[in-house]
Structures are given as structure tokens and as C-alpha cells.
Design a protein around this nucleic acid. Sequence first.
DNA 1: TGATAGTTGTGTAC
DNA 2: GTACACAACTATCA
Length: 548
Amino acid sequence: MSSLMWFRKGLRLHDNPALLAAIEGAKHVYPVFILDPYFLRPDPTAPSPGSTRVGINRIQFLLQSLQDLDQGLQARGSRLLLVHGDPVEIIPSMITQWRVNRLCFERDTEPYAKERDARVKELAAELGIKELVTPSTHTLFDPDETIARNKGHVPTSYGQFCKAIGTPAEPLEAPTSIPGPDPEKKGIPTISVPTLTELGYGESDQEFLQQIVKGGETEALARLEVMMAKTDWVAKFEKPKTDPSAFAEPATTVLSPYLKFGCLSPRLFYSKLMAIYQKKTGHSKPPQSLEGQLLWREFFYTVGHATPRFDCMVGNSLCKQVPWTDDDALLAAWRDAKTGYPWIDAIMTQLRQQGWMHHLARHAVACFLTRGDLFVYWEKGRDVFDRLLIDGDWSINNGNWLWLSASAFFSQYFRIYSPITFGQKYDKSGKYIRRFLPVLKDFPAQYIYEPWKAPLDVQKAAKCVIGVDYPGPIVDHAEASKQCKERMAAAYALAKQSTDLPSQEAVEELRRTVNPGGVKRKEQYGAAGSMAPAGKKSKGDIRKYLKK
DNA sequence: TGATAGTTGTGTAC
DNA sequence: GTACACAACTATCA
């Protein structure tokens, strides 16, 4: 028996049933990872260092994870076979050249992976693969099983989801030894894990490479150990009470990048939590507890798996159809940390430099881009996060953007985060802003969240004149958020007219009536997108959609 | 049909 | 720190 163990996510040796299946009774095991050069090659036209699709921080994290996986395999008598190319071509040629008769890989429920894996399975069957092992171990539960337990319906709320799930299986140990590849079988050139320099990244990219965690299973297990040692903190953990402005010592576990790449098994994390909860009476509970966080992940994986066009507004049965603004200038200002709201721009800078920010900080900027202020398509913001986050995860990212834009799961669109006071609540003196926007570091605390309100002599004393050294606010928050609420009310009213999704013609009509000309920018951002004031003319038309 | 809960809103009053 | 108004959504349950 010869097995091909195809690593994609699941970059770990512990709790890896696909790997254990590959080893079972095998003479040779071929552990493979396939790098797609397109995902890694520097894109000089991209808005920040990285490839077209992935920011430099996540590339670095992946390379470190592969390096660590290779070392783990070597310590067990094997090694990682790293190749460049397209899996749909490479896996079949490996099966042929290496005379493999068992193919093992962890199941992946993202749409592009489903399509790729279906194709590979088809070709493998044609080549006479005897055994195919594809366990659902990226998540605690098999999403199809959860749906079956929920009487065949996709759970569309967290509560419903929690009622449907069972108890996760216990994690498995890592293998102690792994049969190596057959040294006689060659023919497919392998490479060693490239460095960022070898991929073409240079010195100038360093500002955008401020790693807060290093990739790999070894680091994942060490970090899990450190976090779980804080048993009181674990037992009392309530996510909404953690501090989004903490940066020297993040207020949450920062285990998400390890879960994203599968360097850490969710079942191991879960079992460690349960061991602590058993010893602590009155521990916190889902949805706010750490267990609750893992279950949110499961929830979004399950809905994302079973909802066609989950990552789109149009054609997504869960998604409110909203007349968002298609304005690339607003999007670019947000993405490039130039909105003139220091709290928002500091968060976006942390994203660009570190590829990570606190969950509530993500809420603040996502709300600002969509239903709170700029009224830009949530899919555009989703793409920015998807590229830059080290923990960028298709199911969770889309789920949260649907949530934050009040397009699905969450509907209280009138609860809008203030780009001024929300941050202030946690960080009066503006330490977070000073750290990520050094241009503002000498502003007095009184003005640091609203620097445009500082008298000119104060601005000069702080060596930062608003409109010259740092932009003024892109929109007036009070005015913009009021208009956003009106537009959301109209979109919700339209949705109430029928149980079917409204037609795109109806959404277009809404755009003409409640969102004419897009979002009104403040003067220094230019007139593009200037709109008729939310004036009398459009009010009558809104009413049409507000009728119950 | 009506009451209530829902991970994580803000501003003001006490 | 907690309470409530603000304006008002949807799913769930009695």
C-alpha cells in the first residue's frame, strides 16, 4: 500500500485522521503540499505588499507553517514534498508516477475547494485509487451531519445551530513515525519551502510585515498552552468585554490564524476548554465564552457550506438586497486608512501592518464602510479583509460581513458604532491611535479622536495640520449615519413586500430614490459622489417602501 | 397574536 | 456602574 497525503489546510500532525489513515498499513506515504505561484507572486499593482490575492503577512505565516510541518515530518522519518502547480494536474500525475493506491486529504467545504476536490476525486477514481479518505476535521462537526440533525434544514441562527449539534469527538495523538516516500520513485521535482526574499519580496515591504504570531503547529501548540494556563481568564472569558484597543498584549487568544490553516485542531482546543470548565464553577457560556467563539466558527462554516452564493448579495437567499454605493474612492480611502477618522484609520493600519485586529475593531471598520457611514458594498470590504487578514477565512469572513452590514443574521441596523466614541470608551488617551498613526501622536487626548476640531494652533503644536498632514473626516458621521439608516429602512421595507428576494430592478429603483448619487463626501474629498441633499424630493419615494 | 430575546450601540440621567 | 429612551428588526415561543 502506498498513500498520498495531500495537505491543504490541516497543516498539523496532531489530531489528523487523514494522516493516520495514510499511514495505516502503508509501506510508503507521500506527504504533499502544492503551492500555486499565482497566490504567492508579488503584485506591484496591489494596494499593499503581497500577491494579488494574499497579503505579505499571511504568505509569511503559510511559509512558516510549511517549514514547521516539514520539520515535524522529518522528525518522524519522512519529509514534506513541496511542488508548484495546479493540483488538478499534479495529484493525478503523482498517483501514476508513484503508483499510489490510497489518497487522503482533509475535507474542505469552501466553494472553490469543493469544485477542485470533486475534479481530483473523479480523476483519482479513473486512475484506480482503491481508497479515498476525506474526513471532516477542519471543524468540530461535519456540517452535513449538523444539518441532518436539524431535520435537514440549514440552521440560520446561532441558537438553532447550538440546539442541533452534538458533542465533538476527542482529538487524536500525532503519529510517532511515518513511512517515508520510496526513494526509487522520482519524476516529480520538489522544492524546499521558499523564503519571502526568494518569492521576490524586499526590504521596502518590512513596514507591512509586523508579525504578531509566527506560523506553524509548534507555535500553535505553544500558544494554546500559554492561553490555557490562564485558567481563571479562560473560565471568565466574555468576548464583548475584551478590549479592542489592546495592542501590546492582545485581549483575545490570537489562535484564529492557527485554526484557519489547521495548525491547531479545533477538537484539541475544545477538549482543553472542557477540562478547564469542569474545574471551574460558574464559567462563562456560549455565545460569549471561548467555547462560544469556537461554535460561532462552526455556525458560519455550516451556513456557508449549505447556502448557495453565500459570498454574494445578489442571488443569496439569506442576504438583504440593499442599494449600496459603488464608489471606489470611498473604498480606497477606507482601505488605505485615509478616512480622517483616527479610530478607523488606526484599525485599518493595524490590519495592513499586522494582518490582525481585535474582533470589535473589525466590527467598527466594517460598520463604518457599510451600513454606518460610507454605504459601500459589504463584498468590497470582505475582499480587503480576505486579502489582508492572517486568519482570513472564507466562511467566517463572509458570515461576519453579512452580519455587520445587517444583510443576514443581524437586523438591528439602527445600532451603529460611532467612529469617535466607541474607541474612546476603551482608550481615553488614544494610545492605540498614537501607535498606529504616529502622525497624530502629539495631539492632546481631548482631540485625538476628532483632530479636525482642534484649533489651528493646537494642530501646529502637534506638528500635524488637518487637511495637510492628515485628512479631514471623509463624511460627517451624524449626517451619514442618518442617511444610512433611512436607506436601510427602505431596503428592509422592500424585503417585507414579498417572501422572495426583491428583483434587482426593484433594488435599482431603490438606489435611484433613496441613494441618488451615492454618498456625500466632505469638500476636501472632492465632489464625486455628491448627492442631492437627503432632501424633500426623495422622501415621498422612501415612504412607498416604508408602508407596512 | 403578543411578548421576549438577541454575542459586542449611543447618549443622557442618576 | 446601571437604566432607559431612542427607533424599531426578526425569530421564537407561549
